[in-house]
Every structure is written in structure tokens, then in C-alpha cells.
């Protein structure tokens, strides 16, 4: 299908595509065809745009939720139960895209990682790409040792509280780093927060094992 890039004018960059149902032109980001009303496929766009939020680390949680629920109200497949199978599938792919966007933006750590990715910084930790920040590795090692030595649920609780406090501090560091457009600093804090989250999860499991 031909995609038409609009040239010049105030709406530069906007495109339109043929509607799958009535075949007429429809804006590529439109949710519904303005001619026949059929729901349109989600298309590719960033999570912020999808939920109508200004891109950035600091965002209004309440507005994010309101936007997400507002879009789900009109796009969720339950709204299309009596419609042809094809339309139901398109609605489902819209709901999938909304859920993915909301899941990413609603969690500050996922949001920060995603935002770094949009700005060209790959912050994903994978098997091939490990971290080589000695201070971070030392901190992770010490915390692991402390967890291994903790023998009571209370002792683990203490470790969790201390890690939780650091996590809150890191979120505010990340916010400041993004505000100053210091992506390297944001990335360092994001990686540290990832380790802390992992540690907290392990601590939770250990505590549960000790309690039962």
C-alpha cells in the first residue's frame, strides 16, 4: 500500500494511508476512519505519542492513567464484539499497543530505559552486554553477600528498606539528569536502579522462603 508523505505546510510529516475498510484516505495516526468509521491499525509510533503525553521522564501519573483508560474505552476489543472478525483483530492490536505503551511509561525505570533508547542510548542489560562500572559491581557484590548472610526475615527487611531508600534517591537523580540532558548520568543511575530492583526481588524471595 502506498504511503504518502505530505510535503511542506503546517502539517509536515503527517501521512495518510488507505482505510482498510472503505479504501479511502485516512491519516496514518487516526484511530478511526473519518469516512466510514472503521477502527484503524495502531501503526508505529512512540509510546508517548500513542498515549498523547509529552515525551519526558517527569510525567503526570494521573494524566497518564486517564489517557490510557480513555483510549481503552474506545479501542478495547470488547467494544467490537459484534463486529466482523477483522475489525475485532484490529481493535485487539490497538489494545495490545496501548497496554505496551502504558506498561512502559507507568514504571519509572522502564520509562527511563525507553526514553534513553529514544535518545539513542541503549540501556538494556543483556548477556552479551554486561556492566563494567567497578563501583556498581562492588555495591552489587556487597549487597548480595549481606543478603546471603542475613538469617532472619527481619534482617532481610532491614536490607530491603535500605535498598528501597536508595531506589527513591536514584529516581530523583534520574529525573535531574534528564532535566539537564545528561544522558550518561541518567544511564548510570538507570543501571544502578536495575541492579537494585533485581536485588529487592531476590530479597523478597529469600524472605518468603524464610517465612514459610
Amino acid at each position: 500500500m502506498a504511503v504518502v508523505e505530505k510535503i511542506g505546510g503546517a502539517g509536515a510529516g503527517a501521512t495518510f494511508v488507505p482505510c482498510w475498510s472503505c479504501k479511502g484516505p485516512v491519516a496514518s495516526r487516526a484511530l478511526f476512519c473519518h469516512t466510514c468509521g472503521a477502527v484503524q491499525a495502531p501503526g508505529s509510533t512512540d509510546h508517548f505519542t500513542r498515549l498523547g503525553m509529552a515525551p519526558g521522564f517527569d510525567l503526570d501519573d494521573e494524566k497518564l492513567e486517564k489517557q490510557y483508560l480513555g483510549f481503552q474505552r474506545v479501542l478495547h476489543p470488547d467494544r467490537f464484539a459484534g463486529k466482523p472478525a477483522k475489525e475485532r483483530l484490529i481493535a485487539e492490536s490497538q489494545a495490545v499497543a496501548l497496554n505496551e505503551a502504558y506498561e512502559t511509561l507507568n514504571d519509572p525505570l522502564k520509562r527511563a530505559t525507553y526514553l534513553l533508547g529514544l535518545k539513542g542510548v541503549n540501556s538494556e542489560v543483556t548477556e552479551e552486554k554486561t556492566v563494567n562500572d567497578p563501583a556498581l559491581l562492588m555495591e552489587a557484590l556487597e549487597k548480595r553477600e549481606a543478603l546471603a548472610e542475613a538469617e532472619s526475615a527481619d534482617a532481610i527487611e532491614d536490607l530491603m528498606i535500605s535498598a528501597g531508600t536508595t531506589a527513591i534517591q536514584l529516581l530523583s537523580d534520574i529525573s535531574l539528569a534528564f532535566a539537564a540532558d545528561d544522558l550518561a548520568a541518567a544511564n548510570r543511575s538507570v543501571l544502578r536502579l536495575k541492579y537494585l530492583r533485581k536485588f529487592l526481588e531476590e530479597a523478597r524471595l529469600r524472605r518468603a522462603a524464610l517465612e514459610s
Binding site: 479511502g24 459484534g82 463486529k83 472478525a85
Partner: peptide, 13 residues
């Protein structure tokens, strides 16, 4: 259902 959709879409177009 599918035919009905096509007819409605055509009508709108």
C-alpha cells in the same frame, strides 16, 4: 456480517 460491513463502508464512501 463481513458483507454488511463492506456495504456500510461503501455507503459512507
Amino acid at each position: 456480517v463481513e458483507a454488511e460491513r463492506v456495504l456500510l463502508a461503501l455507503n459512507a464512501a
